[in-house]
Design a protein around this nucleic acid. Structure first.
Length: 653
DNA sequence: AGGCGGTACTG
DNA sequence: CAGTAC
DNA sequence: GCCT
């Protein structure tokens, strides 16, 4: 309560403390002449302290006292506070002066990252509760993500908005995307509420105060003493890196209520979430309950994905009780993904989904050890992060130049670890090097991948996905109106943007052969002629295999000058649509989980159907096909597997 | 100690 | 077959 | 990496 007062009082004592922010060179001092007022306006919290110091290094003046004459240009608001909290605490009956820009705490670091003052009006910099928040389109436009600080020297690439395109993606979640596949019985406005910040009014005042305290006093974070300055810089660096890549933090908190097992007596069982802290065993009820697909996640009303490359998939939680842990482990996970180690990466991903559904802060190893998919080693790491805000192991990988190059090269379509490693070993330091290296013979696909590196790396706004799908649909129906096209992938899961466009194409009653020949021999040529399809990357190229091809990968663009987008067509006979939908809807972890479950139950699931009596030899090697149990209906497959139905939007693991 | 999804396309 | 992608 |  009164602790708020501290900032007002302590100003005196900390006046000298800001000493010397050792400024960056003049040219980079993008915040020169700007006056920042932080809210709360103190540096007690480690993260905020880091932000303040970094802002100062880039030229900003940290205004300690609210003063109309201080020329305050920006208020940087802590993510736990709302717009309404500001005038309450600052006692501004008139409200916030209109000339003062109010942004969330992501704004400064984004500006620094892009070396320019960004448009503060962008929705992802707005503070919850901002009046007439012009929920304008999240402006995800053609924002090519430069995943790596290093330059991507693709050659021609005459993007008009080079500047903008180079800008990294916003790390903040967006809650626009109304209407989409809002299968979730959520009150439309609940978007914000679920972020744990009462969206508005009355509480505002209280919350403001309360938060002021909790903020300082009871955040799990850092040990009493502070990490050295190196620690702060690292934290900031990590935040930046984390923002550059998309951190997999889909849905943050599970609301405490809705938990699944309604058959459980409220008495003994649950301590908090789905985890009877029974014996030592982590197993829940059934022997299959350990599969991700058995756990209905709270439905991310809408989320943003980045399933694209590494393990990532999503949004930065406005605030998650274990955000820092998740962030660091995600980075470590991505490192394993690209470095070599798919199994370790998988393990991290499973652990991460557990963490993401953990509504309470984890602070000790013992606590962490209780969670599914978290063993001793991860538990120790988690404790390390919780107490020191750092992860030793990860720090070394952060700066590893080889790793950065690998990441760059792996971003090229048709380049995997083998090629990327080779290129690095050849001494290539950039994509330009790769193109000119005499020892490297690029495949056609790789050339396309390099030429359109930024395009393919960029996210595709949901509405563009829809439009691209519509173009294909219309073209196909012009050929034969009985065809049906379904947009799958993250679009179907409700994502607000996608890495590529996945289309399932079918025609009731038609044979695969007919579907294939129509698509390959008529649709594709037509779309190519129209310059919608810009490249064929795979599928039906090789005439030998073309006779039985079922998928086609390519690149398309909305207009001749629009960015190229990856597009995948899957040709599906009606009887296999259920299985194909599951396959093409994902997500990845969810699919694996379903398939693993099937195989444990003596069945086999693939993109064509669910089979039973599949004979498996040693291990689980397939010996016989088994007979088809179900293929046409998603629900049917779920049922036969004994998995509770999940809407596509709930298949985000 | 052995598994970790299961398949399609390309060179 | 290895490599890549989904 | 974790699980069986």
């Amino acid at each position: 309560m009164a602790s708020k007062g501290t900032c007002a009082k302590t100003k005196a004592s900390k006046r000298r403390r800001s000493s010397l922010p050792n400024l960056v060179p003049d040219a980079q001092r993008i915040f020169a002449n700007l006056n920042f007022y932080f809210f709360p306006n103190n540096d007690i919290h480690a993260g905020r302290k880091a932000r303040i110091r970094v802002s100062e290094r880039y030229g900003a003046t940290w205004v300690r006292d609210w003063d109309a004459t201080a020329g305050i240009t920006h208020i940087i608001v802590d993510h736990r506070l709302t717009y309404q909290d500001i005038p309450v605490y600052l006692k501004l009956p008139e409200g916030i002066p209109p000339e003062v820009i109010v942004v969330n705490e992501e704004y400064p670091s984004d500006c620094i990252r892009s070396q320019m003052i960004l448009d503060a009006a962008q929705s992802h910099y707005q503070v919850p509760g901002t009046p007439n928040a012009a929920k304008a389109t999240s402006n995800t436009g053609p924002v090519a993500s430069t995943r790596i600080p290093s330059q991507v020297d693709v050659e021609p690439k005459t993007k008009q908005n080079n500047q903008v395109a180079r800008r990294s993606r916003s790390p903040l979640p967006e809650h626009d995307l109304k209407g989409s596949t809002a299968t979730h019985g959520d009150p439309s406005e609940s978007d914000r509420v679920e972020y744990g910040k009462s969206s508005s009014h009355d509480t505002g005042c209280e919350t403001g105060q309360a938060d002021g305290e909790t903020d300082e006093t009871k955040l799990p974070q850092t040990a009493p003493a502070a990490p050295d300055k190196y620690g702060y810089e690292l934290i900031e660096a990590i935040q930046e890196v984390a923002a550059l890549r998309d951190i997999p933090l889909e849905l943050d908190d599970v609301e405490e209520s809705d938990s699944p097992p309604q058959d459980e007596p409220p008495s003994d069982s649950d301590s908090e979430d789905h985890r009877p802290a029974h014996k030592k065993s982590k197993s829940n009820h059934s022997k299959f309950s350990n599969f991700q697909c058995m756990h209905s996640h709270p439905a991310p009303a809408n989320y943003s994905t980045a399933t694209a490359t590494p393990s990532s998939s999503t949004i930065i939680p406005p605030s998650h009780p274990n955000a820092q842990i998740i962030t660091l482990l995600s980075l470590q996970c991505d490192y394993y993904t690209r470095i070599q180690d798919p199994w370790r990466s998988l393990a991290y991903r499973k652990a991460l989904t557990t963490l993401k559904n953990q509504p309470h802060p984890i602070t000790t190893a013992a606590q962490a050890r209780q969670l599914r998919h978290i063993g001793d080693r991860l538990a120790r790491k988690i404790e390390e992060i919780a107490t020191t805000s750092r992860l030793c192991r990860f720090e070394s990988t952060l700066t590893d130049p080889r790793d950065r190059l690998l990441q760059l090269f792996l971003g090229v379509y048709d380049v995997g670890l083998a090629q990327a490693s080779k290129w690095v070993d050849f001494g290539c330091r950039s994509l330009a090097d790769v193109q000119t290296c005499p020892q490297i013979a690029l495949t056609d696909n790789q050339r396309v991948g390099i030429a359109h590196y930024d395009d393919f790396q960029a996210r595709i706004p949901r509405d563009e996905v829809r439009q691209l799908g519509a173009i294909v649909t219309n073209a196909l129906r012009a050929i034969d109106p009985a065809f049906e096209v379904t947009i799958g992938g993250s679009y179907r899961r409700g994502a607000r943007d996608s890495g590529d466009v996945d289309l399932l194409i079918t025609k009731p009653g038609a044979s695969t052969r007919y579907i294939r020949s129509t698509v390959l021999e008529q649709l594709v040529p037509e779309l190519t002629a129209r310059a919608f399809l810009r490249a064929r990357l795979a599928g039906g190229k090789d005439s030998v295999h073309a006779v039985e091809t079922t998928k086609c990968h390519g690149a398309c663009s909305l207009t001749p000058t629009a960015p190229w987008r990856r597009i995948d067509l899957l040709l599906v006979p009606e009887e296999e649509m259920g299985a194909a939908l599951i396959y093409f809807t994902g997500n990845d972890i969810f699919n694996r989980s379903l398939r693993l479950l099937a195989s444990r139950k003596g069945m086999r699931l693939n993109q064509r159907g669910l089979f039973e009596d599949a004979m498996r030899g040693r291990g689980r090697m397939k010996v016989t096909e088994g007979r088809l149990v179900e293929g046409g209906s998603e629900r049917g497959i779920f049922e036969r597997l004994g998995v509770p139905w999940r809407e596509p939007t709930e298949r985000v693991c």
